[in-house]
Design a protein around this nucleic acid. Structure first.
Lengths: 333, 333
DNA sequence: GCTAAATTGTGAATCGTTTCAACATGAACG
DNA sequence: CGTTCATGTTGAAACGATTCACAATTTAGC
């Protein structure tokens, strides 16, 4: 059906080896032959078959990127950063979202392995250390993204989420709030537990401050709205004075919910801070305070680590970025 | 290096053909052999090589999905809808963003072709009809997404953008505004021109109404903010009374810009409506009116068309959804 | 004019899986 | 006992690009 190197070779009156050389090492072939072969390629509409190249080469020219949630702008930015950097290395990126589900995560990693990807960037919850070691042993480089490596042998690029959580907590305390609530979940997600730990530390340092945990089923706008309804449904006196949401999607959902019920004013009744500083945080009803992470840079750096990890033989690298507090109206009051 | 069927066959004392049968048609193999082979597979850590399967099969089990902008939640939703439906068919989806750049679009399509994807879903600007015909001729099914097919032979699933534009325009006129502005661009993007055409029709139907075109370099939050600054910088009397933004990202940027400059109140001074009805529209400073498109459904339907297009031999299908007006505070006044 | 060296080009082997015609083996039947 | 059938299993061919040792041709050097 499709045109192959063999067809091209025949039509151009050369051997398949020469066609391959024209494609991959044109300097090894006389100018006249290169031109002739290219003519035939254009005329016949020859398109290289990646599967065959890859089979021969042993690995693919694509990177597998697994993210927690494609709909979260933070991960979209991260993916774009990775894509851009990968393109500079002549690689492409295969993005898959796990939707926070461990089984989808496993399925994606299996798929990547079957595809013999160049390497994997894992920005999802998974704690399957043995699996990661196994992948490395099988020669597939892995970089953990947006999460600190639990194992020194696995390179990682992350932002210090505990520190970010502390930053958020300290900020809420600094504006005089004492009854703090952390809204987030499920606890299987590392980012959630780290950020919670950070705010716990901050709260523990102030004698009369308390921390409440409000669980959610996911890190989505919808779940935020639900949490808001639950909180607004309580007696005003038992509501928290400030909320730290595990990410901006939740935080925006919370604002939405509070506005809809009308019972809670932000920041007067409850101050609110999110995490990630996505574009939409600025445009919210009440512009949202947040903890910023350099999403695109994280993605780009992860690709660099992956490429470096295969080139040089130095030990695995661990890059850690510092989160940055961004104060807006939702915590100004 | 890696374990192959040959290794498995040898270790299990069977032929490679039998190993393949165990993997693909276990009912053809005796239960004892199936069990033995599976044991060996687990022990040796055998992982199928997709490249080899694909080379043999002639095509990949992955769908290529090209979108205009990965960071736009509308496309993220669309991608998720496609991914989910594809999974039901045992297919995976390779999502690539073109960032509105024709050359990146071409590169992505070339990549898909080299990968011998199962089919392509194109939700990007491209008007390269000959290329599409060529792909079809070469046996690669193509479905145009979120854009009406300019060629009956190419199946498509879309929302009537002209109608959506008219809906938005009529709504702005119905609340008494007469000096309307359309903010969007570049004009190379079909969605932009279609929506513009729709609002033009609506405006043309009302004698004293006028339409102004305010161009942007991209459909992003940042570009929306810039446009807002330009508009807010004019004399109040020469500003439009209502704005229809080509999508919600732009609209949210406009709101952000207007709030920052403080010179323009929404909707009192300028009413504002966007397009796509992304999740964040509800949570905006001023909840944003919008024109809703069933993003996930569009993605899922596109996959169905692709799968159907290869199965049955009926003519190419064209699915058209109707957009829906969603009125919120940004146009209530 | 002859040899050594450089330049071009060749073609068979290879990657790992699937397919399929052919072959055992054993059971069922008359 | 010989034939037919069903059930399991085999092994070689194919998919298409790349590689690499080798061959053919040209150029350079003396």
């Amino acid at each position: 059906m499709a045109v192959s190197v063999r067809d091209v070779a025949e039509a151009a009156g050369v051997s398949v080896g020469t066609v391959s050389n024209v494609l991959n090492r044109p300097e090894k072939v006389s100018a006249a032959t290169v031109a002739r072969v290219h003519d035939v390629i254009a005329r016949l509409g020859f398109v290289r078959n990646d599967a065959a190249r890859q089979l021969r080469a042993g690995r693919s020219r694509a990177i597998g990127l697994l993210v927690l949630d494609l709909r979260n702008p933070f991960f979209a930015d991260l993916a774009r950063g990775a894509e851009e950097r990968a393109a500079e290395h002549g690689l492409s990126v295969f993005v898959v979202g796990s939707d926070e589900k461990p089984e989808r995560e496993r399925a994606a990693i299996d798929l990547f392995e079957q595809q013999r990807v160049f390497g994997m960037l894992l920005a999802s919850a998974g704690d399957d250390l043995p699996r990661l070691r196994q992948l490395q042993q099988r020669g597939i480089p892995v970089v953990l993204v947006d999460r600190e490596s639990p194992d020194a042998a696995v390179p990682s690029v992350a932002v210090d989420d505990v520190d970010g959580g502390r930053l958020a907590g300290e900020h809420l305390l600094s504006i005089g709030r004492r009854r703090i609530a952390f809204v987030g979940g499920p606890a299987s997600i590392r980012q959630v537990t780290d950020r919670l730990e950070g705010v716990q530390q901050a709260v523990a340092a102030v004698p009369d401050a308390t921390l409440e945990f409000v669980g959610t089923a996911a890190l989505s706008v919808l779940e935020g709205r639900r949490a808001a309804e639950r909180i607004a449904g309580r007696l005003a006196s038992s509501r928290p004075q400030a909320i730290f949401a595990a990410n901006d999607l939740l935080a925006l959902g919370l604002i939405q919910g509070f506005v809809m019920t009308g019972a809670v004013r932000v920041p007067d009744d409850i101050a609110l801070i999110g995490y990630d500083d996505i574009d939409f945080a600025t445009a919210a009803v009440v512009p949202l305070s947040s903890v910023r992470q350099p999403a695109a840079l994280i993605g780009a750096t992860a690709v660099d680590l992956l490429v470096g990890a295969t080139d040089q033989t130095g030990g695995p690298a661990h890059v850690m970025f510092q989160p940055e507090l961004v104060v807006r109206a939702s915590t100004t009051g």
